[in-house]
Amino acid sequence: MVTAIFAILFYAATAILLVGLGMRIALYARTPAPLSIPTTPAPTSRGGVAFRVATEVVLFNSLFRSNKWIWLLGWVFHAALLLVLLRHLRYFLEPVPQWVVLIQPFGLYAAFAMVAALAGLWFRRVAVDRVRYVSAPSDHLMLALLIAIGASGLAIKYLAPTDIAAVKAFFLGLMRFDWQPLPADPMLLIHLLLVVALMVIFPFSKLLHVAGVFFSPTRNQVDNPRERRRLAPWAAELERNNR
């Protein structure tokens, strides 16, 4: 019974996440950027722009210039999350690749770092009057959700161990459409339920910044308006009708 519920939940959540995010990305890609608006100084070539966007995605360049505390907490959180996610690949891959084995211990430290950074971000959100002012209930809930996911994961590791071989069998089974039993340990189920919630919320929330960062015209446009005429389809139509 538990197995069936979670199997269905995961299928549904994965579908919502992929379709939802895919539709968002398609919408962003389809919507024209009618004017040249890079924040200058901006690169004058495609390669330069790729580098600019890459430094934003990997190093959070602008945030570093902006506020060292938010940068530190934000960057540590994201880097740690990445490690933790990579560490979890061992539940989905058989055989487990060597590099995934190698990062296991780091992934564990990362889990602590992630929770600590999230706590720091939450502290800022409450303690700094400006950030408190702009925060909506959903901003607090998002942090709570992420912290709960991290904490429940750590709890499984240290306080309420589960049969991870069975967990792996469950996920491999999901991927092969050959369901295997999921251990009914409460902490595990909580952890998984929260992850499902996160996946479902993703395409409807501010987590869309993951896609937005690649589509931001102030960052991804080449600075060449004098050399190239940019014309959105609707603007071209306007021009035709006007003449």
Binding site: A33, L63, I70, V131
Partner: peptide, 19 residues
């Protein structure tokens, strides 16, 4: 009409860096 408007309305995480 404008990608920037849609992307900017949806991407802010209220980090407070601009405040």
């Amino acid at each position: 009409r404008s990608r920037s408007l849609r992307v900017y309305l949806e991407s802010c995480v209220r980090c407070g860096a601009c405040t």
